[in-house]
Structures are given as C-alpha cells and as structure tokens.
Design a protein around this nucleic acid. Structure first.
Lengths: 153, 153
DNA sequence: ATGCAACATTGGCACCGCCAATGATAACGG
DNA sequence: CCGTTATCATTGGCGGTGCCAATGTTGCAT
C-alpha cells in the first residue's frame, strides 16, 4: 500500500549489478523494506518481534537471557524492551531471587501483538517468494543455508 | 584473518531461523561483513567503490549524475566524495559550463584504488560462493534475480 | 523577467549491529 | 570471611546504509 519508495532505489551498472554480493544485498534490502513497512503498520520493528517471539517460546526471562536467545545486543534489548513496555506488551519486574535481574513477562496485549506480527511476517515471506515455485523456494532456502553454514564454519 | 566477530552473531530459534527473510538478511550480513572487512583493509567502504567504478565506467561527471548512476543519495555522495578527495582519489573542479556543478574526475591514485577494490570485491564473491558448485552459483543468482525482478515489478 | 528545475551542501532520521563504561549484585576461591 | 571475578541492567556512543527536508545558488524556459 505504501506507494513504494520515492527513489529509483540503487540502479547501478553492469559490473556491480551482476555481483552476487550485490544481489544478496538488494534482496535483503527488499525483504527488509517489506518487513519494516509491515511492522511499522503495527507500530513495531524487527527487534520487537524477535523479543516477543522469544518470550513466548521460552517464557519469562531476564534481559540478558533474551539478548542471548535473540542475538540482540544487551544494550539494544534495553531500548526495545522500553518501547515494548511503553506499549504495554511486556512487563518488567525485579527478580526476587537475583536482584541484578529483571524478569520480563509477556502480557496479554503482548501476545496479541505477537500474533499480529507473525501474520505480517508470514505475509512478507509470501510476497518475497511470490515469483518462485514451491520447488524453487526450497532450492533457494537450501542454497542460502549452505552459504550460511560456510559462514558459521 | 579477522578473528570473526566477537559475538555469536544472531542465533535465534527455530521459528525465525527458517524464515527466508531471515536467511536473506543473514546472508546479506555475511556478505556485507566480508565486504566491509575487505574494503576497510584498503581504507575504503562500499560507497567509495561504487563511485570510483562509476567514474571509470562513465568518465568525469557531476555529483548529481554520480548519484543517479550509483543509486547513492545526493547528500551521501557529497560525504563519500569528501572522503575520496581527502585520499586524493578524485578531483573536484567547478564546471565552467554550468557553475552549479562540480566535475568529478578520477585521479591516477583513484584508478589504482579502484583496481584494488575490484580485486577485493572479486575475492569476496569467491569466498561468499565457496560452498556452491558453479551450477549452483548460477541457479542461486538466477533465483535472486527473479526475486528482484518481482520487486521492481 | 519570472518562475521553475537542477545543483551542492548541511543536517537530520531510522534500522541494525556492535562496543565500552558504569554501578549494582552475585558467585567463587583462598 | 573477604576480595576478586563475573553477571546484570543501563547509558551513551559509533559505523554503514538508505532516506528526506531545507538552503542558497545557478540555469533554463516561458
């Protein structure tokens, strides 16, 4: 619905245009754009979804644990949780057993928001992969996975 | 050589881990990391390469033209050209025929740097695609291209 | 000549990833 | 028991990339 970014969006020349690293970056930018737009429509961003999903999957947790599970830096967890708390999606309460910790809990509203975001996420996958047949989608995911395994060694 | 980013680098849970949008983002981060590291070793960053390559490919040009050709925002072109000029890789001279414009010219040193960066870029492609056979690389590029065509409509 | 368009520049914002330092608290080892 | 070490939440900062708005200058077309 957003009328598409106003700029022509990077449209360089042959030499660069064929580089796999360029294609990957563009695909990521595309995917990221869909995600940001979708999440923005729900007053959220990527970190919010990751944190809410981790809370649902593993239950209440300290901020440090959330950071580890989501791969989000501790400091960014603080900021994102502030935003989530402002929206009433999580609750921060001190851990009686360890006064260094906060226990983060998903609220009812947080759960609803998570469901909303997961719907958005699913829609984005569809939009993203729309041009590929189911078989091609599988191939594509497999190829990506192989690249990433090489990264992780 | 760089001993790998110090963090475990995002390692979320199943639900997210399988999302194509997540895989693409990770692949892009990986590719971006290789690029940034490579370019940093040559005291450069992505915008530098794009601009130098455009200058070599199309010859001297105004900053606005460079922005159009590289897909870099005008304001970011200014900053990147400042950096390139500091390093003596480009020359800014006023256009006698249109006093609004600067004519940007690649210097000898700029040309050498471009060659260096292109070597780095080629190495990065190899590293990135290392786990894929030539046939798989072609498939991968084709799949990516199809996704992006859908983006561009 | 007047108004519109293009130009370079400044400054700002968002997202994501990362890192360093701080003060509080807990855990561990001698 | 005490001191060192580690963990926790928080603040504040940086970089890369991609954007957008405003400014003042200059060119062009009507």
């Amino acid at each position: 619905m957003t009328p598409k970014p106003t700029t022509a969006h990077a449209m360089p020349f042959s030499r660069i245009l064929e580089m796999p690293s360029w294609l990957i970056g563009r695909a990521s930018a595309y995917s990221h754009r869909l995600l940001v737009e979708g999440f923005a429509a729900a007053d959220a961003r990527g970190y919010h979804h990751r944190l809410l999903a981790a809370l649902e999957e593993f239950g209440p947790a300290s901020q440090a644990a959330l950071g580890r599970r989501t791969g989000i830096d501790r400091s960014d967890v603080v900021a994102a949780l502030n935003e989530l708390a402002d929206r009433g999606l999580i609750q921060r309460s001190p851990d009686p057993d360890d006064r260094r910790r906060n226990i983060i809990t998903l609220t009812r509203a947080g759960n609803r928001q998570l469901r909303r975001l997961e719907k958005i996420l699913a829609d984005v996958q569809d939009e993203l992969l729309a041009p590929l047949s189911p078989a091609d989608r599988t191939r594509f995911v497999r190829l990506l996975t192989r690249l990433l395994e090489h990264d992780a060694q």
